[in-house]
Structures are given as structure tokens and as C-alpha cells.
Design a protein around this nucleic acid. Sequence first.
DNA 1: TGCATTTGTATCAATACAAGTTACAGAAAG
DNA 2: CTTTCTGTAACTTGTATTGATACAAATGCA
Lengths: 141, 141
Amino acid sequence: MAANSQFSMAVHVLAMLARSKDENLKSDYLASSVNTNAVVVRRLLGQLNQAKLVVSQTGANGGSRLARCPNEINLAEIYRAINCGEVFALHAKAPSQECPIGKNIEAVLGCIQREIDKGISEKLSRYTLQNVFEMVEQGKV
Amino acid sequence: MAANSQFSMAVHVLAMLARSKDENLKSDYLASSVNTNAVVVRRLLGQLNQAKLVVSQTGANGGSRLARCPNEINLAEIYRAINCGEVFALHAKAPSQECPIGKNIEAVLGCIQREIDKGISEKLSRYTLQNVFEMVEQGKV
DNA sequence: TGCATTTGTATCAATACAAGTTACAGAAAG
DNA sequence: CTTTCTGTAACTTGTATTGATACAAATGCA
């Protein structure tokens, strides 16, 4: 499976913003820390902006900063903002409806999927951005 | 995110095998229920075989069947067998080691990732293949 | 033994999506 | 007005999954 790394990049970017407090950080600067392209960061920031986690300013001296205090942002919100989707995908193509298994398997898996996803969200919500930032700063895990 | 649907297909295939008890099912037959190609199913069965969840026979009257009773197989084992990987990926490219955030963020995220993955596994392990099979059979979720 | 069946696996093409890149309009600051 | 940035579109590239074809090897049976 090729899970994407957008969530990791998002947390990274947000930790940078947490560190810079009220100072705007530019996508170019963030990109060099994440080791990626500025446009990739701006796309990410766009999603975080929609989720009202960051605020961005165009123009000279523009950039992005957190929309809220780091201890009022938790990882579950970030996960949702990035739309990481589900822990596993249901069938790409609908199974045979003629088959007694195929007919009902999707409903059962969908139910289990939602339960697992709820668990992920619950565990992620225990970490605030502040927690993560402090762990990173202190270099202790 | 485009999570793959291999886990769903695997559970589907295993539920079919649970239903057929000791009778061998052919990849062609399984594929028509899953609504995919026989080779896709055989590739999946190969992984389940390595994990000792199914047994396959080549040749005439060949096919696959469960290696164990359905109530001795849980979804966490299937998840592992299919190697669904992690709930989210760490950075594709290592972040800048010059940056105080970039330097430590991977370790912190890795730690959180492992905790979440443990939670997923724990929740999945509560379901046996027998449970899933019964839910599907009874059409109630 | 010879034939039909079926898996296991290699190979190739098609599709999908993330990531990287370039380009540029539009917003803000001075 | 010029410079500096973001937001976004368009395009390319890398990579993973899926689907399809092909064939060797294994098995059962006459």
C-alpha cells in the first residue's frame, strides 16, 4: 500500500508555524524544511486553510501562520483536514450481487471500517499540536 | 488518499472460503464474486498462503481453502497478511536535518504512528472471520 | 502415458494519483 | 509602481494497482 505522506507533511508544517508564533512563514521556507516544493506546501496550506487551522496572506511579507493556539489544535483535526480517507478502501468495483457473500460484504466491511476510523480519530485527538511541538523541541519521543 | 482495496477483497475471498468449508474454490470462481480478474485473486491468495491462512492446490480439482477454522482467523491477521502498511506514511523524502523541527519530526510521528497502528490491530483482532461470515450470511450489520 | 485442469508467476498495458515543475494572475507592502 | 508572495492551473514524471495474456509446473483421471 502506498499511503501518502501528506499528513506527516501537514504536521511538520504546522509544527513550524507553532514555533514561529505570530510571524508569517513563507511557503518557500517551509518547503525547504519539509524538503519538497513550495507549491506542494501551498497546496497543503490550502487544505489547512479550508479547515481553518491556518491563515495565509498574499503579497509582500505574506505567508502563513496558525489560526489558533497550538494547544487548541489536535491531530485528529489535521487528519480530517488532509482528508486522509479511510483506514482501508472498500471494493473498487462492486462485488457480484448474485453471490450471497458479495451481496452483503460491503455493508459489513463498511461498518467495521467506520468503527476503526473512529478509533483512529479518538487516538489522534489525544495529541495537540502543542504536545507534538514540545516532543519535537525536546528531541524526546 | 487512495487506500487500496486489497484488504476488502481478501476478507471477501476468505468469507467465500469459510462458506465452502473443505471444498476447494477456484480463483476463477472467486474472481467472479469479487468482480475482478482471476490473477488478481491468485496474487491475493499468494499473500494469504504465505501468512498460512489458506492452502492452495495446483492441478485438476485444485483451488484454495482455509488453512484453519474461520473462528481461529481474525481480521488483524488478514490485515497483516495483506501488508496494508501504516495508517499514514512518514515523509517520502527525509526533512531537512538543519531545521530543528525537521530533525526530530520523523521520530515523533513514527512513535504516534506505531501507537495508532497498534490500536487498529487491536480493534481488528476483535473480529474473527467467523463473525464476519455470520454477519454477511445474516445480512445484518 | 496422455490429456484436461488449475495454480503460480512473469510480463505488459492501462489507469490513477501523488509529487514536482513552470507559469502567471492577483493581492499586499512600501 | 515595483517587489514580494499566495493561489491555482496546467503539464510532466514517478509509482502502485489492476487487468490481461501467456506459459511452466503440478495434479487428477482415463
